[in-house]
């Protein structure tokens, strides 16, 4: 076995690690970098619990090889809050009780942020389809959708204030 040396950025910070060719990005994050926020729910891309962004694009980290991220920037749940300040989505998920067990929550937050980055004013249908790659078994999704709707509304208000 020969390790592959990879240089990349995680949440903007430079990282260097060695991984095997068959290790996924999820393996690398969890087992080599100690970033266990991304969860392994299926390892086949069907549950979204391991969602991250690669150069800003939403993806399942279980469907990416660790070796592939050479030179790329990965966004994970650990990079979502700014210091003590939670991202509005994080706050709204807690406020709306949009999590019960919470294991799907990091994936949902990454996916929801990716959705709102592209579409700051999504309809309920757009939110539902935008989050269809993330499974939640506890909530029935109702409160998750409401949390995203409420965040979008608040962020639009904040942004228009900033713009003015």
């Amino acid at each position: 076995m020969s390790g592959i040396t990879v240089n990349a950025k995680i949440n903007g910070d430079p990282v260097e690690f060695i991984c095997e060719a068959d290790e996924t990005l999820l393996d690398v994050l969890r087992n080599r970098l100690g970033l266990t926020g991304a969860k392994e729910g299926c390892s086949t891309g069907d549950c979204g619990a391991c969602s991250v962004t690669v150069d800003g694009r939403l993806t399942c980290s279980c469907l990416v090889l660790g070796a592939e991220i050479e030179g790329h920037n990965i966004g994970t749940i650990e990079g979502m809050a700014h210091g003590e300040e939670l991202h509005p989505l994080q706050k709204k998920f807690i406020e709306h009780a949009a999590l019960q067990c919470g294991v799907c929550t990091p994936g949902f937050l990454i996916a929801a942020k990716s959705l709102l980055d592209k579409n700051p004013d999504p309809t309920e249908t757009e939110i539902r389809f935008g989050l269809a790659g993330n499974l939640c078994r506890c909530t029935g999704y109702d409160k998750i959708v409401r949390a995203v709707q409420d965040t979008a509304k608040e962020m639009r208000k904040t942004n228009s204030r900033k713009g003015a």
Binding site: S51, R57, L58, T59, C60, L63, A111, A132, G133, N134
Partner: peptide, 9 residues
């Protein structure tokens, strides 16, 4: 094909 996550790849 697949979810938004899968679409990214």
């Amino acid at each position: 094909i697949g979810s938004k996550q899968v679409q990214g790849r």
